[in-house]
Simulated assay, not measured.
Amino acid sequence: MATLFAIDLIPAQPWKNGAGSTRPLAEGPGWRVSLAQVTRDAPFSVFDQTRRHSVVVAGGALLLQRNEHTLAMRPHRLCSYTGEVPWHCQLQGEPATVFNVMVEPLIAAVDILTGPHLRLAGLAGSTLVLMAVGGSSACLTGEQTSHLLPEGSVLVSDGAADLQADIASAGWPPDGTLAPYLIAVRARSHRPRLC
């Protein structure tokens, strides 16, 4: 079963520090996928036993700093880092929109793919989250289903079936701007979280 959400209709949850907000897209035991708006410099929240994966999908780059460690989050590039330390985030230009995946490796696993054409093999017990980036829609075809993923929406689906996802207008724009692409996350839990 697949559900299509308009991202703008998902309520934004303000951060406690006032530096941004988060729209939750999907979650399960040990994993969470969300879209965040970072509007000013601020510390990131600490998540114990968590690995973070982020893609700046709109706006400027971000710089994460912790003591002598520095991590540059450049637009449209997957960046993976620990969630266990208090990173300080600095905007490197305009405010940023960030696609975030958080996973507790002892409980869950995620596969993250990007590109204009994605072939996603089915995996029983998994959840698939798919979003088009760069101002284009995507065509999704599976064994018994076909969907259009409009710009500004996200698809959350049972990941058991094979799926082919293609940007509707693939190819580099003539003005040299960003070519549209897809972000796909397949998440699955190993075991339930213990209380």
Rank of each mutant, 00 (worst) to 15 (best):
T22A: 10
R23T: 05
L25D: 08
L25S: 12
A26P: 10
A26M: 13
E27I: 07
E27R: 10
G28R: 06
G28S: 13
G28E: 15
G28P: 11
P29I: 03
P29F: 09
G30C: 02
R32H: 09
R32K: 10
R32P: 04
V33W: 06
V33P: 06
V33E: 05
S34M: 05
L35T: 11
L35K: 14
A36T: 02
A36L: 01
A36R: 01
Q37G: 10
Q37C: 13
V38L: 14
V38Q: 12
V38Y: 11
T39K: 11
R40S: 11
A42W: 13
F44I: 01
S45M: 02
S45W: 03
S45P: 03
S45Y: 02
V46C: 03
V46N: 03
F47D: 03
D48F: 07
D48G: 10
T50L: 02
T50I: 01
T50G: 06
T50C: 08
T50E: 03
T50Y: 04
R51D: 15
A58L: 08
A58V: 09
G59M: 12
G60Y: 15
G60I: 04
G60A: 13
L62K: 09
L62D: 04
L63V: 04
L63D: 04
Q65C: 03
Q65W: 01
Q65N: 04
R66K: 12
R66T: 04
N67H: 09
N67V: 09
N67P: 12
N67C: 07
N67A: 14
E68P: 13
E68F: 12
H69E: 09
T70K: 15
M73R: 12
M73F: 07
R74N: 10
R74M: 14
P75D: 04
P75V: 03
H76F: 07
H76N: 07
H76L: 04
R77D: 11
L78Q: 13
L78G: 13
C79R: 08
C79P: 05
S80C: 08
Y81A: 00
Y81C: 01
T82M: 03
T82P: 09
G83N: 06
E84P: 00
E84M: 00
E84F: 00
V85M: 06
V85I: 07
P86C: 01
H88Q: 13
H88K: 09
H88I: 02
C89S: 02
Q90K: 13
L91W: 03
L91R: 05
Q92L: 11
E94H: 15
P95W: 14
P95S: 09
